[in-house]
Design a protein around this nucleic acid. Structure first.
Length: 319
DNA sequence: AATCTACTCAACCGCAACACC
DNA sequence: TGGTGTTGCGGTTGAGTAGAT
């Protein structure tokens, strides 16, 4: 029993394709098209699995493919769509002529995730890290926050120490007042009491990391209770993404990160319905499959431009 | 010059959806 | 309607390479 293999495993070649194999596959497809991938390698004289041939063709040999660096506009589209669709690479790639889902996925994993992280934005939720931490912290009692911070640091300690040692990063407390607040454990001046109460640790670096974490939470609290430096007066993020203004704000509402994810409890009904109507097809089916592509395409059409979607729509947790 | 480390991206894998009988 | 084969998708891996030590 078990799964039927897609090909005779023992007789197929794996790994990098040679120019000769590429040529065989290209010329066969040019003559006969791409019907029945299982038969293509056999007929084309290739010792490859049909699946491997399909992948090679769709990801590399197709004549309409665009090779080379992603442009800024392409990156913006990826980020924007990812915030709405999550890891639905094929749907995202369908909006980028000449790019494959594999291209988009690789580019996201190797470049864009890091770019966003570098901007302090969580690439999964597209929210600032500081806000996410503050969101969690605000739902917990002070002792729980301290425990959470301890647990988090336990996970991150090795990696951060490695980085700090390697890069010789010298973490200095920038604000003497804040430093005093953070370090003065006995005084409990930190609203989150995030620094543990044990005596000054031998592990100075870890202590500094804790302070940094506390500061991020405090800064976020400050910035979300008064006019936020991160967001401009229209409530639009000023976080710049290669010239792209992260457009998640909505006029008059301040940072969208002041809200939770656009869940049923926090989104207005209008906002949700508006977005859902965009994400359903004419039969009212949920956004899915081939229909996804049509619907996403319609977002880019002149009468319904994704870039003009109400920014809160982009927070809909389809991810 | 040699070794180590991090990064990129082509390719693979397993699963799910779809098509056909 | 169920079974079987095919295709598409997303996660993951690993070879190749560039840069750092």
């Amino acid at each position: 029993m078990g799964r039927i293999p897609c090909c005779e495993k023992e007789s197929v070649k794996k790994g990098q394709w040679t120019p000769e194999e590429d040529h065989k596959l290209s010329s066969y497809i040019a003559q006969h098209g791409t019907r029945n991938w299982r038969l293509i390698p056999k007929n084309a004289g290739l010792q490859r699995c049909g699946k491997s041939c399909r992948l090679r063709w769709t990801n590399y040999l197709r004549p309409d493919l665009k090779h080379g660096q992603f442009s800024d506009p392409e990156e913006q589209i990826i980020v924007r769509l990812h915030s709405v669709l999550g890891n639905r690479w094929s749907v995202i790639a369908a909006q980028l002529p000449g790019r494959t889902d594999n291209d988009v996925k690789n580019h996201w994993n190797t470049k864009l995730k890091k770019k966003l992280s570098g901007m302090g934005i969580d690439p999964v939720t597209h929210k600032p890290y500081s806000h996410l931490m503050a969101e969690i912290a605000n739902t917990l009692a002070a002792p729980q926050v301290a425990n959470l911070a301890e647990a988090t640091l336990g996970c991150l300690k090795d990696e951060m120490l490695h980085l700090l040692t390697k890069k010789h990063v010298d973490i200095q407390l920038q604000s003497p007042i804040l430093s005093q607040q953070m370090v003065n454990n006995n005084g409990n001046t930190s609203p989150y009491n995030i620094v543990s109460e044990h005596e000054a640790s031998e592990d100075d670096t870890v202590e500094k990391i804790k302070i940094g974490l506390s500061r991020a939470i405090i800064q976020d609290q400050e910035t979300t209770t008064r006019s936020n430096k991160f967001w401009d007066t229209n409530g639009t993020s000023s976080a710049n993404f290669s010239g792209y203004q992260y457009p998640f704000g909505q006029e008059g509402e301040g940072s969208p990160w002041n809200q939770s994810m656009c869940t049923d409890s926090t989104c207005t009904g209008d906002q949700q319905n508006q977005f859902r109507s965009k994400m359903r097809d004419e039969n009212g089916d949920e956004f899915d499959g081939e229909k996804d592509r049509r619907n996403v395409s319609s977002m880019f059409s002149p009468d319904c431009d994704l870039w003009d979607l109400p920014s809160n729509d982009l927070l809909n947790p389809l991810v």
